[in-house]
Simulated scan of single mutants.
Amino acid sequence: MFQNRHNLSERQVEILVGNLLRYGVLFSSALVLLGGVLYLIYHGKETPNYQIFRGEPPAFRSPEGVATSALSGRRRGIIQLGLLLLIATPVARVAFSLLAFMRQRDITYIILTLIVLTGLIISFIAG
């Protein structure tokens, strides 16, 4: 009938991680949708020219550039920021889980989570 403090904190961590994923995906999806609707309002009737390849503009090659573009109201910047947040959501989940495992002093899961987080960070830096 009584739960010890350790089980209660594990349940709280599960709820927080679930909410982090849920709201992260909802918020980033809403941003992508908003940016997409705004983009279509202004550019929906344009005919794309597929014969000329245009690479990604310099503003979208860094998270700072994406944030600056989105905050200045550029529609593609809003879409890119939503996608960046969508990618960051599971990474934030891993980082949050690491903090929870550190709080619980669970060495096995701390090591495993550090390995996963290191792999994610390396893939972002190398990619």
Rank of each mutant, 00 (worst) to 15 (best):
L34P: 01
G35R: 06
G35E: 10
G36A: 15
G36D: 12
G36Y: 12
G36H: 12
V37S: 01
V37Y: 05
L38A: 13
Y39P: 00
L40G: 02
L40M: 08
I41C: 04
Y42N: 10
Y42W: 11
H43N: 12
G44K: 11
G44T: 12
K45T: 14
E46Y: 03
P48A: 15
P48E: 15
Y50Q: 09
Y50H: 07
Y50T: 14
Q51F: 12
Q51R: 14
I52W: 02
F53I: 05
F53V: 07
F53P: 01
G55C: 02
G55R: 04
E56L: 15
E56S: 12
A59F: 03
A59C: 05
F60R: 03
F60V: 08
F60M: 12
S62V: 06
S62Y: 00
P63H: 03
P63N: 03
P63L: 04
G65Q: 10
V66H: 01
V66R: 02
V66T: 12
V66L: 07
A67T: 09
A67R: 05
S69Q: 04
S69I: 10
S69F: 01
A70R: 01
A70S: 13
L71W: 06
S72T: 13
S72G: 09
G73E: 10
G77C: 05
G77A: 03
I78E: 00
I78K: 00
Q80C: 02
L81R: 01
L81I: 10
L81Q: 01
G82T: 06
L83Q: 13
L85F: 13
L85S: 00
L86W: 13
A88C: 09
A88P: 00
A88N: 10
A88H: 10
T89C: 05
T89H: 05
T89I: 10
T89P: 01
V91Y: 02
A92W: 07
A92E: 01
A92K: 03
R93N: 08
R93T: 07
R93G: 14
R93H: 08
A95D: 05
A95V: 00
A95R: 11
A95K: 09
S97R: 12
L98M: 09
L99N: 04
L99M: 11
A100W: 03
A100M: 14
F101Q: 14
F101M: 15
R103M: 11
R103C: 04
Q104V: 03
R105A: 13
R105P: 06
R105Y: 09
I107F: 09
I107Y: 12
Y109S: 08
I110L: 08
I110W: 06
